[in-house]
Amino acid sequence: MSKHEDAAVPLLSARGLTKAYGRTPALRGAGIDLRAGEILAVTGPSGSGKSTLLHCLAGIVRPDEGTVSYAGERLAEQPERRLGELRRTDFGVVFQFGQLIPELTVRDNVALPLLLGGLGRAQAGARAAEWLERFGVRGQEELRPGELSGGQAQRVALARALVTGPRVVFADEPTGALDSLASEQVMTALARAARESGAAVLLVTHDAQTAAYADREVRMADGTVTPLEVTA
């Protein structure tokens, strides 16, 4: 995936982000750099602004102040339509739960981003099945998300996030509701798929064992990213 990218120039970078919900500040001048192809863990206590940072970086939330630039594009200057398109094509999103549509089959859930991109039903279905197989979800394509275990559902969510070949995957507590073995399967699958496809991952988690799948860790406290950035 590295076309003419300089490894020193981050793929996604944010400076001086502030964001408040009502009177509660969630971010107070947070900054972060995500390089192409790396897995970066954002850890910190609950309420430290991890999820809000992820939302700002993914263009889901517009920060009150500060800049987010992705591959030279300033997200604050983009209209909502372009942000949605970015999230559909260049970004993949995985949440703790809730990103699968309960009424759609597992296969259709994974195929949905492709359908939104204008791909035909048959092709999209086939591509979805391939990705499901890569994540070890086999023979369950016709089930609904409610019929899956938590770990399986998260692997389906990963397949949905990666099916469009995104350059950045945003994962917000992807193992938050899982036990340690299911977490391990999900994280191994995520790390492997990201490395194979060259996607960068921004991994928000409060769990050190999950964060250990990353190449690097930054910590958040009180809405800022602490200066500690120890590179592996």
Binding site: A58, R87, G98, Q99, P102, L116
Partner: peptide, 13 residues
């Protein structure tokens, strides 16, 4: 509404 918000966050227009 939470599920729908997640869909929009994931890029579903």
């Amino acid at each position: 509404r939470r599920g729908l918000a997640a869909q929009v966050a994931a890029g579903v227009p």
